[in-house]
């Protein structure tokens, strides 16, 4: 056997003995390049039984809700103070809860009859909200009931505000379940999905109450753009409402 070949055999053997270490080195390099892939996943798999349970998640969520409510009430106080400084209409003193005792959201008259009236402090013209937002205004009262003209009623006209485009409009009932929003100018840039709230400058209804969402836009309408609004409060399923006392 030639002497050179004898010398190469041990080197090959050394490499063969070291191949697991090479593989390990390559694996560690892969871990490094992949920012810990494998290790983090393995850790997640092994530590899953000790992860925070649903209780901790609930605590965090309730803490977030509490935080939001606190911030909301502080902002409302600030808003009321600033509006009074600017001599704009404020949000009101309180509200009267009332059950819906008659519901006619379709047909010739679009109205609700609620189980609170003049004796509970309800007066014509007051705004009525339901879970979801504004639904209408009190049109007439008896001692123990009040009739609410819904936003869908053809006689209903309410000034509204589209926050994203910073434009005013007039929400007009047309006798269907979705009222029409008439803008004051052509091509205001409104698009489906925009949220509609009561106008900050309105004298009829409190400002910034949620009304609904733009469903479709008719840009060819004359003289200005029209939009169909899906009300956020479900008129067919409202059982209790709140009358906002100014």
């Amino acid at each position: 056997m030639p002497p050179g070949r004898r010398q190469r055999l041990p080197a090959l053997g050394g490499i063969l003995q070291a191949w697991p270490w090479v593989l390990l080195l390559l694996a560690l390099l892969a871990v490094r390049l992949s920012k810990g892939a494998g290790f983090a996943d393995a850790y997640a798999l092994l530590s899953r039984p000790f992860w925070p349970g649903s209780a901790q998640g609930e605590w965090l969520r309730s803490a977030e809700i509490l935080n939001s409510q606190t911030r909301l009430s502080q902002l409302e106080v600030d808003n009321r103070r600033l509006r009074s400084l600017l001599q704009l209409q404020t949000g009101g003193k309180g509200m009267v809860s009332a059950p819906v005792i008659s519901r006619q959201p379709g047909g010739w008259w679009q109205q609700l009859v609620i189980g609170s009236g003049a004796l509970q402090g309800v007066r014509p013209g007051m705004s009525v909200t339901a879970p979801g937002g504004l639904i209408g205004r009190v049109a007439s009262v008896t001692p123990s009931t009040a009739t609410v003209a819904l936003l869908t009623d053809p006689g209903s006209r309410v000034g509204v505000w589209v926050g994203r485009i910073q434009r005013h409009g007039l929400l007009t009932g047309i006798g269907t379940s979705r009222p029409l929003l008439r803008f004051l100018e052509k091509d205001p840039g409104v698009r489906p999905g925009d949220v509609v709230v009561t106008s900050p400058a309105s004298t009829l209804v409190p400002p910034n109450l949620t009304v609904g969402v733009i469903q479709s836009v008719d840009e060819r309408a004359v003289p200005a753009t029209d939009a169909v609004v899906q009300l956020s409060a479900p008129l067919d399923a409202v059982d209790w409402v709140q009358v906002l006392v100014p």
Binding site: I101, S102, R103, Q104, P105, G106, G107, V113, S177, D236
Partner: peptide, 15 residues
């Protein structure tokens, strides 16, 4: 009946 406006006796939301 006008006030109660029973739901099953409506056609397309109209009593």
């Amino acid at each position: 009946l006008v006030l109660a406006s029973p739901g099953p006796l409506k056609l397309a939301g109209v009593a």
